[in-house]
Simulated scan of single mutants.
Amino acid sequence: MAAPIDEAKLNAFVGKMLGDLGGAMSVPTVRLGVRLGLFDALATGPATSAELAQRAGGLHERYVREWAMAQAANGYVGFDPASREFSLSPEQAMVFHHADSPVYLVAAYEMVAAMVEAEPKVEECFRNGTGVRWGDHAGCLFCATGAFFRPGYVNHIVQTWIPALDGVEAKLHAGIRVADIGCGVGFSTLLMAQAYPQSQFTGYDFHAPSIEEARRHALAHGLADRVQFEVATAKEVPGRDFDLVTMYDCLHDMGDPRGCAKHMREILAPDGCWMIVEPMAGNRPEDNLNPVGRLYYNASTMICVPTSLDQEVGEGLGAQAGEPKLAEVIRDGGFAHVRRAADGPFNMVLEAR
């Protein structure tokens, strides 16, 4: 016999679903607004749809009007019924306009679009247990991922994460050798290089197109003379006696994170430090049933786990592995000391020696 329906619970759940569906349907319109410069144009001051269309380079007013009403319904822009003007508040601008804001989130919409595009590939993984090679997911996922993490790196690597490591910042100012492994398109490597000009940095990633993009960034920022980018898997990074090894949001994506940890121990100098930045997660799965865990579990289903299962071993830690599991993996590599050096809403920073 079917359980009776609680109308109040049903209505509440349908209300939640309407909110979720509205958010999902906002993905293409937000992406259009970013590419067409509409959020940036609105950041200069309130405007009617006609004024906004002109301000954004002479777009078609009817489309701009519908787009602006959609964003007003989303709560992403303001709307004044009396003046018919749309506006971007300082808080909304932090998310949609200021690229160096710690909560600049427009790249997340690009990641969502890539996840939807890759859905058939991941569905096949569900059926046969295989994976999806990084770079083969869809679109420019590696570009979107780099852009998504960049605001956090801009606001935390030099300001809070590295200073939280025991004695590392002083060494960086004096001049040491650093390997940034899983560097992607190079944002993390270049931010460190800009802050610590006496040190030498090499970024490594197994994805050749990402390394090509990182080299272009290095040239554009005038850092190619002391920052190198090389293609290599984490377990095959060449060289020895690095004073600092960094990994930003990538250990959980690796097929063999324990083998990776062992190799990190081998390439570090005797008094070297390994800094591991990973997504924030609780110690138990039920601790992650929250808005941040929701984002990470969904992204992990579509990106992180398929990436790991495509590689050798295929441990599939997932983006919500949690500190105890990560510490276990790190200690299996031969590290005696693992501690949480810093954390925030989106990331935790582990220090291993």
Rank of each mutant, 00 (worst) to 15 (best):
A195I: 02
A195D: 04
Y196T: 08
P197M: 13
P197F: 10
P197Y: 10
Q198G: 03
Q198I: 00
Q198V: 02
S199A: 14
S199C: 10
F201E: 03
T202R: 07
T202A: 07
G203W: 03
Y204D: 08
Y204E: 02
D205Y: 07
D205G: 07
H207Y: 12
H207D: 10
H207Q: 04
A208S: 09
A208W: 01
P209S: 06
S210C: 10
I211S: 02
I211E: 08
I211V: 15
E213K: 13
E213W: 04
A214S: 02
R215W: 00
R216E: 03
A218P: 02
A218R: 04
L219F: 01
L219I: 07
H221S: 08
G222V: 06
L223Y: 04
L223Q: 12
L223W: 02
A224I: 04
A224E: 14
R226T: 06
F229W: 09
F229L: 12
E230T: 15
V231C: 08
V231T: 05
A232T: 09
A232G: 09
T233F: 05
T233A: 15
T233P: 05
A234S: 10
K235V: 15
K235C: 04
K235L: 05
K235P: 00
E236T: 15
E236H: 14
V237I: 13
P238Y: 06
P238N: 00
G239S: 09
G239E: 05
G239A: 09
D241M: 11
D243I: 09
L244C: 05
L244A: 10
L244N: 06
V245F: 01
T246E: 11
T246K: 07
M247L: 15
M247E: 04
M247H: 10
M247P: 00
Y248F: 15
Y248G: 05
Y248K: 11
D249G: 02
D249K: 03
L251Y: 03
H252S: 00
H252A: 14
D253S: 08
G255R: 13
D256H: 09
D256W: 12
R258N: 07
R258Q: 15
G259H: 10
C260F: 15
C260N: 14
C260L: 11
A261Q: 12
A261P: 02
A261N: 05
A261D: 07
K262D: 11
K262V: 11
K262N: 06
M264P: 04
R265A: 14
R265I: 02
R265T: 00
R265F: 12
R265S: 13
I267S: 11
L268P: 13
L268N: 08
